[in-house]
Computed example of a mutant assay.
Amino acid sequence: MNFPYTGWVLMPSFKPVELTFVKDRGGWHRAERGKDYSIHDIFPDKHSAISAGHAALVEQQLAVNKKQANIQKRRAALEKAAGEAKT
């Protein structure tokens, strides 16, 4: 990889931003602004960054769904225990 180069990253808000990277830091690249980004979080174009964002959202939704199922199981166990306590 030749420096400097431009790449796209997703901000925590998931907004894609084009940055110029100026230095290799062993698996991380330093942006002109001074922040380091993992090479796995830098994309060659805006479309790739957006696609990665959509994939991350799918993963997050799956995690939420799993957590929701666990909450429902725990609620059912508590309701069952509360019903048994009344008798």
Rank of each mutant, 00 (worst) to 15 (best):
K23V: 11
P16M: 06
I42V: 13
S48I: 11
T20E: 03
K46L: 05
Y37F: 13
V22W: 00
K46V: 10
L19V: 02
F14S: 15
E32A: 15
S38N: 14
D24T: 08
Y37L: 09
E18Q: 12
S38F: 09
K46S: 04
S48P: 06
H40F: 07
F21V: 10
A49R: 02
I39W: 05
V22R: 03
G26N: 13
F21C: 09
F14I: 09
L19P: 11
E32M: 14
A31V: 08
G34V: 07
P44I: 13
A31F: 00
V22E: 08
V17N: 04
K46N: 12
K23E: 09
P44T: 06
S13R: 06
R33G: 08
S48W: 00
K35V: 10
E32L: 12
S48G: 05
K23Q: 04
G27H: 06
F43S: 02
Y37V: 03
T20K: 05
L19N: 05
E18S: 01
T20S: 00
H47Y: 13
Y37S: 04
P16E: 10
R25M: 09
V17S: 06
E32T: 04
G27K: 03
H40P: 14
W28S: 12
R33D: 15
R33K: 10
A49I: 08
W28A: 05
H29I: 04
S48F: 01
I42F: 01
K46T: 12
P16K: 01
V22S: 01
I39A: 11
D41C: 14
K46Q: 09
V17R: 12
K35G: 04
K15V: 11
H47W: 13
D45E: 08
T20C: 02
H47F: 11
S38Y: 10
Y37R: 07
I39R: 04
F14W: 06
R33A: 12
K23L: 12
D45I: 12
K35C: 10
D24G: 09
F43P: 06
T20F: 13
I39C: 15
K23T: 07
H40V: 15
E18M: 07
G34S: 03
H29Y: 09
P44K: 01
V17Q: 02
D41M: 04
R30Y: 08
K46D: 05
V22I: 04
G34Y: 03
W28L: 02
G27C: 08
D41F: 14
V17I: 06
F14L: 11
D45Q: 02
I42S: 00
